[in-house]
């Protein structure tokens, strides 16, 4: 008598589908005209996603970049402080230490705090101790150009994991390339300045 079993499972499955048929997308467009002369190429290997993003807002030293299908990445002087549209988003962050480290500040251990939201919609935080662990000069290939940059590695640890963020800044201090950790499920993202 497996029939009731299968039928119950099927009913459960179908009832989900019936509801799914009514799905509405949260489609949105950008209000502000982006400054299209600037762009970055962002990729998140864990999500198999990649795309160009253009600036859509600036608040203080934070610039928010938006992809064509509405994922956003916000950087404070090149250091990621917030993402949206990725699922396990970085909701906000205190990155004063990372900014200091990535601009060649002192190499001491200092705290970094990342804010997240769980599946019950409650905030939680991940704190790290971070420090600049390596600095070297490097030639970076961006598209068909080669740019002189300083490569800075920042190592962050807590009781659960160790992450390594890598920042490449050019002579003017502009972040031209980076690899930065976002969250448990998003993992690392990579950015590259698009030079035209």
């Amino acid at each position: 008598m497996m029939r009731p079993v299968l039928a119950i499972a099927l009913t459960t499955f179908l009832s989900s589908c019936a509801q799914l048929a009514g799905l509405v997308g949260g489609g949105q467009t950008i209000l502000i005209e982006p400054d299209v002369s600037e762009a970055i190429l962002v990729s998140v290997p864990a999500l198999r996603a990649q795309g160009y993003a253009v600036p859509s807002a600036r608040v203080g030293s934070v610039t928010t970049w938006r992809t064509a299908d509405s994922a956003t990445f916000s950087f404070d002087r090149g250091v990621i402080v917030s993402t949206r549209g990725l699922g396990d988003d970085l909701m906000g962050a205190d990155v004063r230490q990372s900014i200091a480290a990535s601009t060649g500040g002192a190499g001491d251990w200092a705290p970094r705090i990342n804010g997240y939201m769980n599946g019950e919609y409650q905030s939680y935080f991940m704190t790290f101790q971070c420090r600049r662990s390596a600095t070297q000069s490097e030639q970076v290939v961006l598209g068909d150009r080669t740019v002189a940059a300083t490569r800075i590695t920042e190592t962050c640890v807590n009781d659960e994991r160790q992450i390594e963020n890598i920042y490449w800044r050019n002579g003017n201090g502009v972040m031209v390339k980076s690899r930065q950790w976002v969250s448990s499920n998003v993992g690392y993202m990579e950015t590259e300045r698009v030079i035209r």
Binding site: V59, G60, S70, R84
Partner: peptide, 13 residues
């Protein structure tokens, strides 16, 4: 999970 909602409109200062 926490939801893969499309990004909201940024706050415009």
């Amino acid at each position: 999970g926490p939801g893969a909602d499309r990004a909201p409109m940024p706050v415009l200062p």
